[in-house]
Each structure stands twice: as structure tokens, then as C-alpha cells.
Design a protein around this nucleic acid. Sequence first.
DNA 1: CGGTAACCGAGACGGTACGTCCGGTCTTGAT
DNA 2: ATCAAGACCGGACGTACCGTCTCGGTTACCG
Lengths: 209, 209, 209, 209
Amino acid sequence: MTTQRKAPDAARRNEAARRAILTAALDLAGEVGYARLSIEAIATRAGAGKQTIYRWWPSKGAVLFDALLMLSEGQDDQPADLPDTGDLEADLKTVLRATVDELNDPRYSEPMRALAIEILLDPALAADFAERLDEPMRELKRRRLRRAQQAGDLGPGVDLDVAVDLLWGPLKNRWLHREGPLTTEFADTVVETALNGLRPGQSSSSTSR
Amino acid sequence: MTTQRKAPDAARRNEAARRAILTAALDLAGEVGYARLSIEAIATRAGAGKQTIYRWWPSKGAVLFDALLMLSEGQDDQPADLPDTGDLEADLKTVLRATVDELNDPRYSEPMRALAIEILLDPALAADFAERLDEPMRELKRRRLRRAQQAGDLGPGVDLDVAVDLLWGPLKNRWLHREGPLTTEFADTVVETALNGLRPGQSSSSTSR
Amino acid sequence: MTTQRKAPDAARRNEAARRAILTAALDLAGEVGYARLSIEAIATRAGAGKQTIYRWWPSKGAVLFDALLMLSEGQDDQPADLPDTGDLEADLKTVLRATVDELNDPRYSEPMRALAIEILLDPALAADFAERLDEPMRELKRRRLRRAQQAGDLGPGVDLDVAVDLLWGPLKNRWLHREGPLTTEFADTVVETALNGLRPGQSSSSTSR
Amino acid sequence: MTTQRKAPDAARRNEAARRAILTAALDLAGEVGYARLSIEAIATRAGAGKQTIYRWWPSKGAVLFDALLMLSEGQDDQPADLPDTGDLEADLKTVLRATVDELNDPRYSEPMRALAIEILLDPALAADFAERLDEPMRELKRRRLRRAQQAGDLGPGVDLDVAVDLLWGPLKNRWLHREGPLTTEFADTVVETALNGLRPGQSSSSTSR
DNA sequence: CGGTAACCGAGACGGTACGTCCGGTCTTGAT
DNA sequence: ATCAAGACCGGACGTACCGTCTCGGTTACCG
């Protein structure tokens, strides 16, 4: 269902094997971490032949990617859009807190970190990931911010991509580089600081210290 | 000169071999990228025995770390502090533009990316790196911002670590994840946006440029 | 038409597929030799499914066996008996020279060698081959020699099986083990030497030729 | 010590590993037969890495070859020549009976059969084997027969190579193709028949039936 | 000033995993 | 029910590196 090597007949695909492989990949990523994750181990754990993996996925990273997509599917009614209650700050905090919770869930966190590392190693996977997950997500974020800008909640000159970086980047960094604990308080502080700016100003009241 | 395993006699160390190994690591990281960088290849390229590497460094990442330190030494009169002309915005732009230039220099960029990935994989290396490079650098940044805060150029309630994340994080992300071109314009925009905040305000000098 | 696994309905068998498979086996044996001959390649070359092979033959060797039988059919009016002109030496030379010619024909030689090797590896195939081809042939040879013995052209104490080994064995060895060129002169020499024995005697017509 | 791939440093070779590998190959050949003999299994059984095998031997057959040489060494005081008591028939029977005994020894027989099959599959191995074992042995046989010829015990016109084929070939065939029980009686009969020839003659008295 | 203890290049070693090939079985759709 | 097609599990292939281990040879300290 992901990037393919040489057109195997997708219709004949064994769905049970696919799920077993993705589940095994998820489990192993959680158990041993990226550095020791091997295709051989995934195949063995899944009770599958290695060729079955190589037939459908071009790399370890592609397996992880699909595995995480599988994990997301069963549960979400696809969040077609970010919340928009009219209160930008509250909405952003809601979204970022949810992200914090997800990144603190070990079921997601380790496989995701493994995928993130694979993406750094494999440009082809990076492109695939950017196109199919990262860019759509960023577009959702940009859209919400654009509405805020039109409503006058964001400065008219603000570059929306930079705004996204300022809001979501710190979370991603803390998580990926394990630079500190990932709490909802941190998420709130980031939102407030990014919105109000670092300079002293009239609106620097917020909830913050 | 870095983390050591079991007390080899540093006095007897062959400096020529050390430099050959670090240079080989640097070159190879630039040529083949992290994914294909192997200790075996470094040893061969350096004309060194593998044992000579294992004797002095605990991991591939530690070699890269030292290699980058070697690269930095010959050139800098160690910047003991960040510039402080009194104009925070200008100072920050100066520093971030320099960072952009460094990250765009292929001599640094590929080995650094390789090191960054190693750090994600190896907690021991991560700790070493944090202690010896990352935390001191962050302290420098915090110090400059603290002075700005005392001078009233930063809001009194601003969390300095968050401030550092907001200012330096977007650069690091763009570079590491190859999310887009790394330009001095981008650096400037990040500084302005982070300082002024995303909300509309009296000081929205953002668009002016 | 050969050894079967579990009663497939021979009546419904696709004759075209059978011929395509046997032809492909013959061709491939000639082209790549036994060591690289695979059922997969035969199926692909024949445009047949692997299952079609496994349905009708128990092993690669069985395919080769049938393939060689097919090759022999189109041409011979089954030699029900060895020639018997009354002149034993002349008759034996006639037969062995024919064998030499056959073994020098590349169409036969490589597939036959492949079959011979399969037989060494697979006792079941060996039994099948012995029963259906080798033993009948040997009986033909024994019968001719028995008549010669009755006619007084063979010593009364001679073990006919040993005689067959002495006459036909050297040819088989030279061919299978590529121990030297396989010529009609060699066949003649073998016949003469085997008949007259190695000891010097009155009938040492050996050198005369 | 045999055919090598790319000049590894033979001086540094680990003799213990070499012996473990050869012994494992011998044992496995005896236990599972050629068809299921794998380099992987040899390495595992020997407690060696696969690379250690590939470093020193070009193929499975080369390992077997060396293994059999090792087996022959410890025991024989290299038979520099075939026995020559003056009685050709007796000497030949002595030698062939010894061969029969060796071929009936399961320690030798299965590995030897495995080697014989490898030789049929691998021309490079065949050449190596011919040069280093088969041809020297054949020369020994030829030499003994040449002396017999000079002594008048062999017809002057007899081709010595054919003579060797007639004497030793039947044994090799019976053994390799499992065409019947390999007994000392069979060896005796072959010698007598080959010496006296198949034709009736004055000297066809012998011990035979 | 000669012995010895560390270094060094080289590379063999036991292993793990790679990505590929093929064996033999099973499944699908069409004839 | 056979057939072409080909997915599937599994086992072995031959290769690349890992990290450890010897081997001689070469410093450089120390008695």
C-alpha cells in the first residue's frame, strides 16, 4: 500500500501477513528501539518470510511508516481540520496538549522516533513522508493560522510557515532530542510566548508566571 | 582525548594517527553520508588499524564528535560569549546568520548531521554531547537573553529556555530535517517573529524589509 | 505420464504445457548446466505455473527424465535388442560407437549429465530410473553377452554383470567425469582390451589398428 | 591451504578454526548427505563465522576436499607407490580390496560421495581435484602397470589408461552409483576378468567360479 | 643502555543482518 | 479440474560490518 518495488499484484496481497508484519514492527520498535530493529527480526516475529517484507516495502522505514498509519487509522475519525472556536490561544493549547499526550504514549513514541530517524537516513522515505503526512498536516496548521490572521488574531505580516515552526517546533525538538520533559505546561508556555513574543508588551499578562 | 574505555596511556598516543582518523571520518561523512559511514571504512581510509579507533573512542559518534571539535579548533578564537551591542535584535540576527552560514558549509554540514543522528541513536553519546557542547552553548544563549531581560528588552515573565527554543529551534529543524532552504532571510524573519510575537501589535516591524 | 503424487486426473492434462515444460527443461539444462537449473526458471521459460510442474512431477530430476524420454521417442524405433551378427567384437564396437556419438551430441549430453547428477542426489529418482531405463538396458546387454557365451565367444566363467561393467563403464566414466575426450577410437580400444584381457596372449590383436 | 580467493594472510590462520570447520563438514556430510549440506550448517556446527569459511575456501566442495585430505593425513604414511611383489594379480587384488574397505567405511564414504558430486557440479573444483589427487593417483597406477608390462605380465600393446579404467572403474561406479554391494569378491572378480579378458582362453582357470 | 610495556597497522575471528534466490505450498480467476 | 500467475513461509546464499582478538614491528620510558 506504500512505495513499491516492481509492481507485485496488490489484489492478491495477504492482509493477515500485512497486519502481522506491521504489528511486529511496532512491537519491536517499542521493545528494542531503532538501533536494534532489523527486518529479519520483524519477519521472524511476524511469522513471515523476509521476501514478503521486501516485496511490499522498500525499506525498514517504509514498514514503520505504514505501521504508524495503521495505528492511527483504527482510532481517529480523521481530523479533517484543526479546532476553531474563535479563541486562537485556547485552540492552539488544545491541539498542542493533544500532541504532547500522543508523544508521551509509549505505543506511539518509540515507533515514531524510529521512523523519524529512518527519515533522516533515507531521502526517499523523507520525500514519501513529507508528501503523505507532514505536508498535509502542516497545511492544516497553516489553514487555521490563516483564518486567525484574517480574523485579526495574527499580525498581518506574519509568515505562516515560520509561525508553525515557532508553535510546533519546540515540541518536536524536546521530544525527538529528549531535551527535557514533555508536559502540557510546556505546551502552554510555548503557545503563550510565541503569540505574545519575547519583547515586553501590554499583552504579556497571560496565565504565565 | 574524548571518552575513554580503559585507561590507555594517552601520553604515548600517536597524534598523526589521531588526525588521520578524524580527517578520514570527516571526509567519509561528507562523501557517503551517515547511513554508509562505517568504522571499517574510516580505519581503511586513515591507514589505521580498527583497534586504534576502538582504543580511543567508544563509538562512531564519538569519533565524529572529536572530528568536528578538531575542525572548530583551528579556526575560532573560542567565542567566549555572544555579542552584546545593546541591540538585541541585531545581535541575534548576527549570531543566527553565522549559524546559517556554518550549516550551509558542506565541510561542516554532513559530518554534523551524521553526529546528530548518532546522538539520536546513542544515549551515552547524547549525554556526552549535551554536557560538553550543547549545554555550554545553551548557557551562553541564556546568558545573553538574561542580560536583555534585565535591560528590559525581554518580557519579565519569559522563560529563557523557551526563548532559546523559539529562536534557535526553527533553524536547527530546517537544517536537520531538510525542511527547506536555509537562508539568512529566514534567520532574520525568525528573530523578528519570535521577538514581536505572532499577535498583531504596535511593534509589528515584521513586514518592513 | 511419469511418477505421480496424488492422482491428478491425467485425462485432463494439458499436453501443450507438458511439452513446453520438458522442452524448457532440456534447453535450460543445455544453457546453464545442472548447478543453476531451477524449477522456477523452467516454469518461467515454459510459460507455465510452478504448480503445473509440481502437480505432475515429484522433482526436478523426474522432469529431466521425462524430457530425455521425449527426446528419444521421436527418433528411435525402440531398439528392442542389441545387434547380433555373430561377430561379437564388431557388434560391441557398433553399439559403443553409437553411444559415443550420442554422448557427444550436446542436445543429449547436458540434460543427461543433469539427470545423472539428480540421480546421485535423489534415491527415489535413482530407483525409478533404474527400474525404467537402466535395468532394461543392462538386461539387453546381458542377453547379448549371454548368447555370445553360449556361442563360445565368451569365457564360460565370466560374470556377465562384470563384463557389462568392463565394456560400458569406461565410456560412462569418461563422459560423466569429463576425464578425457570421448572418441570412437577409445570405444574400440576398450572393446578390444576387455575382450582380450590385459595379459599378453595369442589373440593380442590390440595394437593392430 | 587449498584454493584461495584473495590472498588472506595464511600465516595468521587459526588452525583450531580450520580443523573445527573440516571436522564439522565431515560429520555433517555423513549425517545429512550432500543434498542437505550447507555452508551455514558447517559454520554453525564448527562454531565459526561464515566469513571464516568463505575467506579460506571458494566453495563447499573445496571444504570437503580439504576435509578428506585431513582425514587421510593423520593415518597414512603416504603410499608413495603401489605394492610390487612381482605377482601382478595378487598386488592388484590387495590394492582393490583396500579400496573396497575404504569405500565401505562410512567415515569416508559419505563425505567422498559428497565431494564427487560437487566435482560434477563445479569445473574449477574438478580441475583442482584432478591436479592434486586424481592424476597423481592415476600416475601411481600407471607406473605399476608399466612395470608389469616391462616384466611381460601385460600385453605390449595395452593402453595403460584403458587398463586403469578397466581395473578401477567398475569399483568407482558400483560405489558412486550404488549399483550393488561393494565386496572384496567383486574386486577379485574384476581383477581376474580384466586380466584374462572376456574371451575364452587357456589361462581362464583362476580362482573364479 | 638494554628491557619491556604500551603503542601501532594489519587483519583473522565469531557473529548479526543484509537483500536475493529458490524450494515447495497455497490461492485466485479464467478456461 | 487444470492452468498461468504469483504470493506466501522458510532456508540458504554470499557480503558487509560489528567489536574482539592476536600478530609482528616500532617507539619511548625505566630500571
